[in-house]
């Protein structure tokens, strides 16, 4: 998904070149481009513009430029920095864990067993339900007094242990992580499953004849065969991880003690609740840069790993 990948991918076998192709191309492009321009590029440009102003919805004060004030005050604001840090912690935990679990699930549901389609659909179902629905269910399951999770914990520890899950600053982010992984691991699973099914099965047969064990086959056939898929999945998961919003919005509103606040939630609070559009737009810009930077960094690490 980065520049590098794209430039490499830009070696298609174009079926049309020359003037006629250009005309056709722009006709094909036009509807999407017009919409993208009006509803994505211009608003994003506006967000950049507003981030340097004191713009506030419903304020009778004149609009004026405030330079980088919105940015400097962001980086001295403990609440924002905590939200930023939460996003990073969330991404650092969720990306590897969720991708690894997704790979495990993909291999599991790639078995040729009768009824496997049922399990594929089951593991994917939370993704279908969406973040808000999943959060509603888990909110009850994680209730400190009545929740199923505490019921299980109490039964397992003979009443010794029970957690306050989403209500305790020490466990809230971890609880959100669990809910998010449960709710979206199916998505990565399906993509990886597709990748698995694309690996020719004769490779495995040949390896078996050579006496390679399961682990050796995984190392020498599965992983290399899935390389591009894994890179894609990791990038996607990273972007999704930074976009964490629905779950914290429904479940904790960023609390307790800001332990589950995220950049997007902070943006929504600042922009909608406090109507500080200038500041909210500065958060949007920082968010964008952070995701791009994180993705590029990750790319580098994966690249070095490879060589």
């Amino acid at each position: 998904m980065t520049t590098h990948d794209l430039t490499r991918a830009v070696r298609p076998r174009p079926i049309r070149t020359g003037g006629g192709a250009a005309l056709a191309a722009w006709l094909f492009n036009a509807p999407a481009l017009v919409l993208l321009l009006i509803f994505l590029a211009v608003p994003f440009g506006l967000a950049i513009f507003f981030s340097f102003t004191n713009f506030r919805l419903g304020s009778p004060l004149p609009l004026r430029f405030v330079g980088v004030e919105n940015y400097t005050s962001l980086f001295s604001d403990a609440e924002f920095l905590q939200a930023f840090a939460n996003n990073v912690i969330f991404a650092v935990v969720v990306v590897p864990v969720q991708c690894a679990l997704a790979l495990g699930l993909a291999i599991l549901v790639n078995q040729k067993i009768r009824g496997i389609a049922f399990f594929r659909a089951l593991f994917f179902m939370p993704v279908v339900l969406g973040g808000a629905v999943v959060s509603t269910i888990w909110f009850i399951l994680m209730d400190p007094s009545y929740g199923l999770l505490n019921g299980l914990l109490r039964a397992a520890t003979f009443g010794q242990l029970h957690l306050r899950w989403l209500q305790d600053p020490n466990t809230a982010l971890a609880s959100i992580i669990v809910i998010c992984i449960w709710g979206s691991v199916g998505f990565q699973m399906v993509i990886l499953l597709a990748g698995l099914q694309d690996i020719p099965s004769d490779l495995y047969e040949a390896a078996q004849l050579d006496g390679a064990g399961t682990w050796a086959q995984f190392r020498s056939i599965t992983l290399p065969g899935l390389r591009n898929t894994i890179v894609f999945v990791v990038t996607m998961t990273t972007i999704f991880a930074f976009r964490l919003f629905d779950q914290v919005f429904v479940l904790t509103h960023g609390g307790p003690l800001g332990s589950t606040n995220t950049m997007l939630l902070e943006l929504v609070k600042v922009g909608y609740d406090q109507q500080l559009i200038g500041r909210a737009c500065a958060i949007a810009v920082v968010f964008f840069l952070a995701v791009v930077a994180f993705t590029l960094l990750q790319r580098r690490v994966i690249k070095e790993d490879e060589s």
Binding site: G45, L46, I48, F49, R56, P60, I277
Partner: peptide, 19 residues
């Protein structure tokens, strides 16, 4: 060109938010 267009749009956007 984009910046020019955005600042234009910006001004109209503000008018919308005004009193």
């Amino acid at each position: 060109a984009a910046v020019a267009m955005l600042s234009l749009a910006g001004l109209t956007g503000c008018a919308a938010g005004g009193t």
